[in-house]
Simulated assay, not measured.
Amino acid sequence: MAEIKIEKKKPLWPWIVAILLIAAVAYYVFIQDDGTNNNMRVETENAIGTDTIAK
């Protein structure tokens, strides 16, 4: 009789964890906005706008 070699499947969960970690890092770096840039831009626009109106 011929010998049948059976290979065990490699676990899938390490790949899922790795993808989730990469997605979390990408979210933190690229998508998350702490709001400092928007607040500074609005304050600058307001300061310039009120100075030109007051003169």
Score class of each variant (00 low, 15 high):
22 I>V: 15
7 E>A: 11
15 W>H: 11
47 A>F: 07
36 T>A: 10
49 G>C: 01
5 K>D: 13
42 V>C: 00
50 T>R: 10
37 N>A: 11
52 T>I: 10
12 L>I: 14
53 I>H: 07
55 K>G: 07
38 N>V: 05
20 L>P: 00
48 I>V: 12
1 M>I: 14
25 V>K: 00
4 I>F: 12
34 D>S: 10
19 I>N: 06
10 K>D: 04
25 V>C: 05
7 E>H: 08
37 N>V: 06
45 E>Y: 02
11 P>A: 06
49 G>T: 04
53 I>E: 13
9 K>C: 01
52 T>F: 05
36 T>F: 07
52 T>H: 02
45 E>H: 01
4 I>H: 14
40 M>H: 01
52 T>V: 09
6 I>T: 13
46 N>G: 02
27 Y>S: 03
6 I>A: 08
44 T>L: 06
10 K>Y: 01
23 A>R: 00
18 A>R: 09
33 D>M: 03
38 N>Y: 05
52 T>G: 01
48 I>L: 08
19 I>E: 08
55 K>P: 00
16 I>C: 12
30 F>A: 07
44 T>A: 10
43 E>M: 04
11 P>H: 02
27 Y>A: 08
13 W>M: 13
23 A>P: 00
50 T>C: 06
37 N>E: 12
9 K>E: 10
20 L>E: 06
46 N>R: 07
26 A>C: 08
4 I>V: 14
26 A>S: 08
12 L>D: 11
44 T>Q: 07
35 G>V: 01
13 W>T: 10
44 T>S: 07
28 Y>M: 05
5 K>S: 11
45 E>D: 06
31 I>V: 13
28 Y>A: 11
33 D>P: 00
6 I>K: 13
48 I>W: 02
23 A>D: 04
5 K>Q: 14
15 W>Y: 15
4 I>M: 12
9 K>Q: 12
2 A>V: 15
16 I>W: 11
53 I>A: 12
40 M>F: 04
1 M>R: 14
36 T>E: 10
38 N>C: 01
27 Y>V: 06
52 T>R: 08
37 N>R: 08
16 I>H: 11
29 V>R: 05
44 T>K: 05
22 I>W: 04
35 G>M: 02
